[in-house]
């Protein structure tokens, strides 16, 4: 798996990158939405982007909207990872095209659970079967 971690906090980027590395992911980092967009334009498309909401220059929600305007990036799975935990914000991010949403603070296991839901990490028994579609999954938007 290849992943892009988008967060203005260096500490948070490093926590997420290390957790993803445990799963064998190859990780790139960006400090705001605009840098993330240019990374996507410049290189090969990753499988996953973990995106903070509040960042300078370009916030996470704007990044999601911009990324979803590009049909060639359709296969990119986007998960918001943010302290913004109000339901209307979650609903806005999902409507804009995020596939999942993880509210800070979270444990490494919570991150792995979410990746498993998205078919990007193996389950506890070590198997890996992408395409899980559980309750509410149909409405999660993003054209996945």
């Amino acid at each position: 798996m290849r992943a892009l971690v988008v967060d203005d906090s260096r500490t948070m980027r490093s926590i997420l990158s290390r957790s993803l590395a445990v799963l064998g992911a190859e990780v790139e980092e960006a400090e705001d939405g605009a840098v993330a967009l240019s990374r996507l334009e410049a290189g090969a498309l990753p499988d996953l982007a973990l995106v903070d909401w509040n960042m300078p220059v370009m916030d996470g929600l704007t990044f999601v909207r911009e990324a979803r305007r590009r049909p060639e990036w359709r296969s990119l799975t986007i998960m918001m990872v943010t302290t913004e935990g109000e339901y209307d914000q979650i609903a806005r991010a999902m409507a804009a095209g995020a596939h999942e949403y993880l509210v800070k603070p979270f444990t490494a296991e919570a991150l792995f659970d979410k990746l498993e839901l998205l078919g990007l990490a193996g389950s506890a028994d070590g198997s890996n079967d992408a395409g899980a579609n559980l309750a509410g999954g149909e409405e999660s938007g993003g054209g996945r």
């Binding site: 339901y87 993880l102 979410k114 559980l134 309750a135 509410g136």
Partner: peptide
């Protein structure tokens, strides 16, 4: 919040 984070799809959180 920590319990909710454990594998509950965000769409289900908002709905249920």
């Amino acid at each position: 919040g920590l319990e909710i984070n454990r594998g509950l799809p965000a769409a289900s959180l908002v709905r249920y």
